[in-house]
Computed example of a mutant assay.
Amino acid sequence: MSQATEEFFASLPARAPAILRAPVTGTLQIDLTTDHRTDHWLVRLSPGRAVVDRARGPADAVWSSSADLFERLAIGTAQSISAVLRNESTFSGNVMLFLVFRQFFPTPPGVRDPRETAREQTGRA
C-alpha cells in the first residue's frame, strides 16, 4: 500500500467535520487490488464523522479499484467519477456514499473554480 493512500485514510477522521455536512450515513467498503492481493478499508460515514478500519465487513456500498488508481485519486491526479465511468473502478450499493466520499479527494493540480474565474473576469470589465 502506498504512503499516499495510507496518509489519505489516516486523514479522514480529522477532515470529516469540514467535509461531511450532508445528512448521509452509511458504511463504504473500499477494496484496493495490487496484482493478486486485495486490501480492504471500511469507512463509516455520518454527518461530521468518519471512522476508518482496515477491515472487511458489512457495508452499504462497495468500491473496487486498483491500488495504483486510488493513489492517483488520493494525490489529486485522477477523478473518481471519471474512473467509474471509464470502468477503471467499480461501485455497487448506495451511490450517495460514493458521491459524499469523493469530496475527500483533492482537486487536480491547476484546477480552478469557475466561479472564481468569473469573478476575476467581472472585476476586470
Rank of each mutant, 00 (worst) to 15 (best):
T27Y: 04
G76K: 04
A118P: 00
F105Q: 08
A50M: 09
R21T: 14
A50R: 06
A78Y: 02
A14T: 15
T107A: 15
L28Y: 09
A59L: 03
E116T: 10
T34N: 15
L20P: 00
R44T: 10
E6L: 15
R86W: 02
L99P: 01
E6N: 13
D31F: 01
L69G: 06
I19Q: 12
V43D: 00
R15P: 05
L45M: 13
H40R: 14
P13Y: 10
T5A: 14
A83H: 05
S80P: 05
W41S: 04
F9G: 05
D53F: 04
L73T: 05
R49H: 13
P17W: 08
R44W: 01
E6W: 10
L85R: 04
A74F: 11
R112L: 12
L42R: 11
H36I: 15
F101C: 11
L73F: 12
E116C: 00
A18M: 11
D68V: 13
S11D: 14
E88S: 05
P109Y: 07
T90S: 14
T90Q: 13
S80I: 05
A61V: 01
T77D: 12
A61G: 03
S64N: 13
S66G: 09
T33L: 04
A16V: 07
A59P: 01
T38D: 03
T27I: 07
A4E: 10
